[in-house]
Amino acid sequence: MRRRLTASTGWAIAALVALLAPLLLNERQMFVLMSIVILAVFATSYNVLLGYTGMVSFAHAAYYGIGAYAVTLAWVHLGWSPLAGFLLAPVAAGAIGYVTGLVALRATRLYFSLLTLAIGQLLFLVAFQWRGLTRGDDGIFGMQLPLLLQPATNRYYFLLALAAIALAILSVAMRSPFGATLRAIRENRDRAGFLGIKVKRYELAAFTLGTAFAGWAGGMYAFFDRGSFPLLLDWTTSADPIFTTLIGGLNSFAGPVIGAVVLGLLRDFVTRNFLYFNVVLGTVLLAIILFMPGGIVEGVRRLAAVGGPGRRRTQPEQPADREQPAAAGTRSKS
């Protein structure tokens, strides 16, 4: 109960800050904020796979890129307004996510991850090489936005609204019985199967939901950058939501959002003052992996548990027990 109260207070404060921020920020800072808002949706969509269902995909950026291209391609080839094109983004990404997920989910665990790497790179290469459709490496830029969305502040509020809708939908889905079932699958696939849960079907549903909202985030990106380019689909871009989630914490809904704020601000600060962002990011990641594997959210909770009264933890978190031995019954004894 108390946690829910603090969580809703946290969201309220975050919403207030997000709404009032444009009053204080200059245009460059507005763009930083927009990139954070987009990353928050991208990373939260990824956490449906990683944190809730326990699937490590290297293809998530591909669906993000597909979302961005859905907007720009509809604009270039069909003459659609970006607003109409945006509706296409989650649909296209989700549809391709469903089909490719069907293929990738023939395997499990590591081999699933490696299949997503191959599928993601294949999608990247389509964007990179199919010049007739995508203009290849040049990308598509200079998309005309509706007049109302041209000022940075308006565009920011537009993106903020889109992010709020996405987070609201995902939050409902993850708090629902469906979300609870995904977490159970993450904890023990075999046991979930014995309860009559068709695990693959749920994994595919989670994959499709996650990819659809990656497309949603990609569609937001197309508004932000007024364009799209192949690198958005590359597996190295998939590292963004993974890192964001890891920094914030993958065992909570807010983790990826907090991670997006931290990573976005860090990236802005470092790239403005120092040439070498990767070395900073790598070091931060390594520090989190080694010393705070639950991310910021878990770290703060633990601090609160030490400092605050009445909170009790019987044992330190055990991050290792995802790797349950194959459930009983799968080993025939007699």
Binding site: V56, I242, G282, L286, I289, P293
Partner: peptide, 20 residues
């Protein structure tokens, strides 16, 4: 003994550091 994902991401962190 920890999650494979953490090991993988640690090597990813080194990829970033070494490249810079």
């Amino acid at each position: 003994g920890k999650e494979h994902l953490l090991q993988l991401l640690a090597t990813f962190a080194f990829l970033l550091i070494v490249s810079d």
